[in-house]
Structure formats: C-alpha cells, structure tokens
Design a protein around this nucleic acid. Sequence first.
DNA 1: ACTTTTTATAC
DNA 2: GTATAAAAAGT
Lengths: 88, 88, 88, 88
Amino acid sequence: MAEVVGIAGEQLRQFVARIERLEEEKAALTADIREVYAEAKGNGFDTKVLRQVIKLRKIDKAERQEMDAILELYLEALGMMAGGGGEE
Amino acid sequence: MAEVVGIAGEQLRQFVARIERLEEEKAALTADIREVYAEAKGNGFDTKVLRQVIKLRKIDKAERQEMDAILELYLEALGMMAGGGGEE
Amino acid sequence: MAEVVGIAGEQLRQFVARIERLEEEKAALTADIREVYAEAKGNGFDTKVLRQVIKLRKIDKAERQEMDAILELYLEALGMMAGGGGEE
Amino acid sequence: MAEVVGIAGEQLRQFVARIERLEEEKAALTADIREVYAEAKGNGFDTKVLRQVIKLRKIDKAERQEMDAILELYLEALGMMAGGGGEE
DNA sequence: ACTTTTTATAC
DNA sequence: GTATAAAAAGT
C-alpha cells in the first residue's frame, strides 16, 4: 500500500517542507519586527505612533500606485497608449 | 428531548432570523451597487476606472483619518491633551 | 480645460455619490450583523458555531432553490407551465 | 523648530527604515509561499487540502511542544533538571 | 481576549 | 475580477 502514495507522496512531502520553511522565515521576520519596535520603545518612541507612521507611509505608497493605475486607465481609455495592453 | 433545547433554542432561532434578515438587506444593497455601475457603464463610463475612483476616495478618507489620529497621538505624547491617557 | 469634464464630470460625481451612499448603508449593515453576533456571544452562544449555522442554512437554501429550478425546468419541458410569473 | 526633531528625527527615520525593510522581506516571503502553492496546484495537488495539511501539522507541532513543556515541568518538579534555560 | 486587518476562496 | 469568509496581527 506504500506504493500507492509513492511519487505523489514524496512530492507532497517536498511541497510541505518548502512551505513550512518559508513560514518559519516569515515568523522569524515577524519576531524581528517586533524587536525593532521594542528597541524603538526603549529609545523613547511611542510604538503606537511609530506603527501609525509605518501604516500611513504604506497608504501613501498605495495611493501613489492607485493614482498611477488610474492615470494609465485614463490614457488607455483615451487610446493614447502605444503598446500597452487593452485586451480584456 | 425537545425541552433540552427549549429556551436556548428559541433564542438561537431569533439570532439566526435577525442575522439572515440583515444579510438579505446587505445582499440587496450589493445588487443595487452593481446596478449603479451598470447604469454608469450605459452612460459611457468605464466601470474599472469608476471602481478605482471609489477606491481612491476611500483611501483618501482613511488617510485623512489616519493623519488626524497621528496628530492626536503626537499631541498626547507632548502632554497637550487635557484628559488623555498615556498609560500602557 | 474645465469644459472638457463639464457634463460627464457632473454625471460622474453623481454616480460616485450614489455608490458611496449605498456602500455606507452596506457598511452599516455589516456593523449591525457584527453587533448581533456580539449580542449572541453575550448570551452564551459560540459565534463560530453560529456562523456555521448561518452558512449551512445558506447552502441548504441554495440547494433548495436549485431543486426548485430543476423542478421548474422539468415542468416546463412537460409543457405544464402556464406562463405566469413567479420570477423576482 | 527644525532642531526640535533633530536627533530623535534621525533615529525615527532609521527605525522606520529598518521596519520597512523587514516588512518588505516578509511580503516577499508571503509571495514565495503563494508561488509554492501555485506550483503544487500545477502538479495536481488541491491547495485547499494542502493548506489543511500545513495547518494540522502546525497544530500537531504546537501540541507536541505543549507536551514537551509539560514533561519539562514534571522533570523540573522532580529536581532532575540541571539548570538549563527554557525561559525566554 | 477582542478587534481589526489581511489573506484566501468561491463565485 | 469581485465579494465573502477565514486567518493573522495588533491593541
């Protein structure tokens, strides 16, 4: 019965291993980020404010990208894009 | 055995009914929104652009609120708020 | 250049306003639903279970409607439908 | 008024930079994980099942760690632990 | 523990 | 590609 899951089983094992490895690294980064906040706090910064700053900068960035996307859409709609997409 | 679920069962029934009622209303609004997009499309607007506009305005609004929150936090941090907290 | 967006601009403004209005109402309903779950929780119900109940009933309902649709198709195929409404 | 934020400002800038760097790496890992799932799907695996497998293994692992922790506590209580750490 | 935000799935 | 539901993160 072991043969039934042979090759697929091995492949599955590898996918699971890769995902778990990446998730470990991700968890480590989450921990690192938490540490930086702790260090900032130790230097007198209000972590709540710091988190807000990070969040706001993220929103700003997203907004800039949105605006670029809208501009592109308008140009597209106006037929002014040279080799852009246009396919639906 | 019916008595076992008597009172709790009736309460559950009512919670379920209330939630389902609200979800129906919500679904109706989703349909309404879809119709407005369809109408806009019928008037020559690109719904993709329109959705971007709505999304951008939402981000703008959120950003404004974020900025207000940060300002408050800074003022608080500077001890300029009358009854503010500061405890962590 | 203001004229370029004149009429279309006004129309766009109105579509945006209508969509935003509807989305606000929808958000309010989402909040209401959340409150009902909170109230249920306060009465000792497990919200996770409650959500499952709602979901199951939704699936059941969809299945029932599918069965009704199939029944209708059969009746139609048999030429037994008058032509009356029933549609929503 | 620029001096007010001088040194603290520079420090803040650095904390922000470090956090944003780490968050970028984290986002990259999220994307990598997504890709692995996509690759697994391309090899015929059901991603939903795969995600469940990962989740179950995570729970199992947590349980094993809990059991290890309990074992440690017992050993400790029995005075059989040298003095090794374990505390964080 | 609770809420909010993000992420994934289903349509 | 959008909407809803589940998961993760922050407070």
